[in-house]
Design a protein around this nucleic acid. Structure first.
Lengths: 108, 108
DNA sequence: TGCGAATATGTCAATTCTGACATAGACTTA
DNA sequence: TAAGTCTATGTCAGAATTGACATATTCGCA
């Protein structure tokens, strides 16, 4: 596991104190976190591309600015369900979501 | 929306009484349900390919047979989170999950 | 620098999800 | 038919997620 990847995983709620701590993550946990972060950054990218503030977007999906912020940072308290429903609300298709998950990099 | 697709959506908790009822689903809701059903059938396929019963698989992921059954039928009460974590537990990679979501058909 | 807009963080009550249990149904085999 | 195995369905207490609010931090710009 590379340092670059570790850095990407240091999102809110997933911060790690050391490489040793980090390595305690199972393959499965790491994959889950990676997936969440991919969707999170994708959401942020699509939202900004639409020229929407978090507040504006929150209103559109009947949520709050703070929750949108948590979504985009991949906070522990947000589910994949919420992330995916939010992407769908922005008009992103299942196909595109699949691509986001499949790609090793990121972006929608 | 084709009849074949409607039939696929008639999973537990999402049954529809008529085409009219069905059409009340927004694009967004339909996409969400489709996505869930893709993951659900994929899970069932991978599990059976591994020659595991629902009970055996449930034990492996610290869950119960009944919840696994609900996962595989795309029950309302199961989240995408649980479906995806379950797939990861079976060794399915993020890349494969992305493919499942992207494909118009199904299977992992 | 300072100000306002945007984003991030912490908390919590209400809603939703989860594992577990009971039980029903489907299927096979004796 | 009966019994055994597997899967499906209904229910519920406990756990996790959610929107909302307060507040902090960051960012852009005059």
């Amino acid at each position: 596991m590379k340092a670059a990847k570790q850095k990407r995983l240091e999102a809110k709620g997933w911060k790690v104190g050391s490489a040793a701590d980090f390595l305690e993550l199972s393959e499965e946990e790491a994959a889950y976190i990676e997936l969440k972060l991919k969707l999170a950054s994708s959401l942020k990218e699509v939202r900004t591309r639409r020229h929407l503030t978090q507040k504006e977007f929150a209103k559109r999906i009947d949520s709050s600015q703070s929750r949108v912020a948590k979504m985009e940072t991949g906070d522990r308290s947000v589910s994949l369900d919420l992330l995916i429903k939010s992407l769908l609300a922005l008009g992103v298709t299942n196909k595109d979501i699949g691509k986001v998950i499949t790609n090793n990099n990121q972006a929608a």
